[in-house]
């Protein structure tokens, strides 16, 4: 392939390294050294993470967790433009401001749908396993060029802005990856098997409705624990779905799978473990309560879970 995801890792590593260096250089920063070390370690994961012995990376991850846990990741001062200047610029540039913002999703979609199968000289242009990520990377670069051109600002300023937002997000940016790591470790340690054992061994499923409820609610609960419906599906479907719903009650497996996965998604809406959907947006929108997105989603998720029980009971 020509554009491999490896380039994006390097790009991310460089951006984070610049963030770390700017933090180290910021004498006014209240938590200059710990914050700098936090972002420097994170940048190393992208720059050389695959070359280091895994145990070293593990140590680095624990150090990052301790820095974050002791409140060591802080915010520096940033020279934001005053509100009047931003408003004046908004009135001057108008809809042109939308162009780079919309270019990111647009290029990503074009890349992952149209350019996906393009080969140049026998080599695929985009990393075939990571088309969406690579397209997103290209989209961000195209959009950055457009933004610099339209606003007559410099790439250096864009790095300052990137640092401003990175610091505003803080450890929330790292949390999704931590949780994904934990999911893999849970798998290795057999957490899924233990949960499936508990749900199937102690509940009497001689009633069709009970079995349906166990499957639907189990998918949601297991997703709440693991943070990911994909991890819950094999466990619950292997434990309850296939042997009991299909085997005992003759369910249509397509209906069971479709509604089962969606029940898992209801769980995703209710758990801090799905950090990239629930915690990161709260940080991005500067909400003081990091659980406010989850709270906004719970009524929809619970109603939909009840609907799913009825739908599966009727349709299967």
């Amino acid at each position: 392939m020509i554009l491999s995801i490896q380039y994006l890792y390097w790009l991310a590593g460089i951006i984070l390294a610049i963030t770390a260096i700017m933090t180290f250089a910021d004498r006014q920063h209240p938590k200059r050294w710990t914050t700098g070390v936090f972002w420097a370690l994170f940048s190393l994961v992208f720059l050389v993470g695959d070359l280091l012995p895994p145990a070293w990376v593990g140590v680095g991850v624990l150090v990052m967790a301790v820095i974050a846990g002791t409140g060591g990741v802080g915010l520096g001062k940033h020279g934001e433009l005053p509100a009047e200047k931003r408003q004046a610029s908004a009135l001057r540039l108008k809809n042109k401001l939308f162009i780079p913002a919309l270019a990111i999703p647009l290029v990503t979609v074009i890349g992952s749908v149209v350019v996906k199968d393009l080969h140049i000289g026998g080599l695929p242009l985009l990393d075939p396993k990571n088309t969406t990520f690579v397209s997103l990377g290209v989209g961000c670069l195209v959009s950055l060029a457009l933004a610099c051109w339209l606003t007559r600002d410099t790439p250096v300023q864009s790095m300052r802005e990137s640092r401003r937002l990175t610091e505003a997000l803080g450890w929330a940016m790292v949390l999704p990856q931590m949780l994904a790591m934990l999911g893999l470790l849970f798998n290795d340690a057999g957490v899924g098997k233990a949960v499936a054992h508990l749900t199937t061994a102690y509940i009497n499923m001689d009633f069709r409705f009970v079995a349906v409820t166990v499957y639907v609610v189990g998918m949601a609960l297991f997703t709440i624990i693991m943070g990911n419906g994909f991890a819950a599906f094999p466990v619950m479907t292997g434990g309850v779905g296939v042997p009991i719903l299909v085997g005992q009650y003759d369910a249509n497996p397509a209906v069971m799978a479709a509604i089962g996965m969606f029940s898992g998604y209801c769980g995703t809406l209710m758990t801090p473990m799905a950090a990239n959907f629930n915690i990161v947006p709260a940080a991005l929108l500067n909400l003081p309560d990091k659980n406010s997105v989850i709270k906004a989603q719970i009524p929809t998720a619970l109603s939909l879970l009840a609907v799913n029980i009825m739908l599966l009971y009727i349709l299967m």
């Binding site: 890792y9 934001e80 540039l93 401001l97 780079p100 913002a101 990520f133 959009s143 950055l144 990137s162």
Partner: peptide, 20 residues
């Protein structure tokens, strides 16, 4: 790959926010 989705757009979004 997970944090890429969050990290990479920040430079552009930040720059555009600076300009209103």
């Amino acid at each position: 790959a997970l944090p890429l989705i969050i990290l990479l757009p920040l430079a552009v979004i930040g720059l555009l926010e600076r300009h209103g």
